[in-house]
């Protein structure tokens, strides 16, 4: 029975499943099913809590299915001004930081392919070497402080503009494009700028989309810079930082809220709901761009394993 229970085609050769195969398959499906469930369920659990009746959430009645559907939790969150502020800051840094990073990476990636540049090898090596060492947290912090980049929005943007990994990715990509297109444009008298804008940029779109999307997720998730550099400026703190603060100050979150415009909100929303709702708001954008990201995964893998 076991020998003929399943017959499948593999490259034109008929294989028979043994009992061992079936047990393995069952265990395999079971394992992957459970692991996948563990990756989905927490988000589902947080989500059903944010759309359920606050009273039931507080009473701990929401476990597997939502009850008393309502959007009031989100509606109340939106009224919190410091929440809006951090959403604004995070969106702004993500958009601006990613745009500048992509622009500079593509330009620099193009430039380092040009062998006629004065001392090209030197500049390129100077960039690549920065991937392999790191002065350490404290020298970095003191440096940022001396540049006036503490308690300053630009601390999120400027240090991230030059990203050696992305420059190398773009460079490798451009090197794979046939050089003739560019050369003929050059002979026609096009300047480097024109070539970059009219030829390189359109040809590089796939790789630029990859670094843009990974860069954007990096900006959205970035937390250390807000924590270390902008600790004294609540108005500049990112959403991740805000969430961290809310998760950590669960005991006095009511006090945090009532100090603002939200004294009556604090009573209607309890700590748990605020934490869950902010978590959800922080995750949703990632989940929204996620389907678009998937097609860039394979290129994105190179982000972790590029060679100078």
């Amino acid at each position: 029975m076991a020998d003929i229970s399943a017959i499948r085609e593999s490259g034109g050769i008929v294989e028979k499943k043994t009992a061992g195969d079936i047990i393995f398959d069952i265990l395999n499906y079971l394992f992957f099913g459970l692991f996948t469930f563990s990756c989905i369920f927490p988000f589902y659990y947080i989500f059903i809590n944010t759309i359920s009746d606050p009273a039931l959430v507080t009473a701990g009645k929401i476990t597997l299915i939502p009850h008393g559907l309502t959007l009031s939790n989100y509606a109340v969150m939106i009224k919190l001004s410091d929440f809006w502020q951090s959403v604004l800051i995070t969106v702004l840094r993500t958009v601006l930081g990613t745009a500048l990073m992509v622009f500079v990476s593509s330009l620099a990636g193009y430039l380092v392919t040009k062998s006629e540049m004065w001392h090209r090898q030197l500049w390129y090596r100077l960039l690549v070497v920065t991937m392999y060492f790191n002065a350490g947290l404290i020298p970095w912090y003191l440096n940022m402080a001396s540049l006036g980049l503490t308690n300053n929005f630009w601390a999120y943007i400027i240090p991230g503009i030059v990203s050696p990994y992305n420059i190398i990715l773009v460079k490798t990509y451009i090197e794979s494009i046939p050089g003739e297109i560019e050369e003929s444009a050059y002979i026609d008298g096009a300047s480097y700028w024109t070539i970059y804008l009219k030829i390189i940029w359109p040809l590089c779109k796939p790789i630029l989309a990859t670094i843009a999307i990974f860069g954007a997720v990096g900006h959205w998730n970035s937390f250390q810079d807000s924590l270390i550099l902008n600790a004294d400026s609540p108005a500049l703190q990112t959403l991740q930082h805000r969430l961290y603060i809310y998760l950590n100050q669960s005991s006095n979150i009511g006090a945090v809220l009532s100090s603002g415009d939200a004294s009556n909100i604090a009573s209607s929303l309890n700590t748990k709901i605020i934490q869950y709702t902010i978590s959800m708001v922080t995750i949703i954008p990632i989940l929204c761009v996620y389907p678009f990201m998937q097609r860039y995964f394979e290129k994105g893998l190179m982000l972790g394993a590029v060679k100078g």
Binding site: F43, I46, H241, L247
Partner: peptide, 16 residues
Amino acid sequence: FTTIPNFISWVLVYAV
């Protein structure tokens, strides 16, 4: 779905 957790920050993992 198993790739999603890689794209959320550690703060969100902690939230989970």
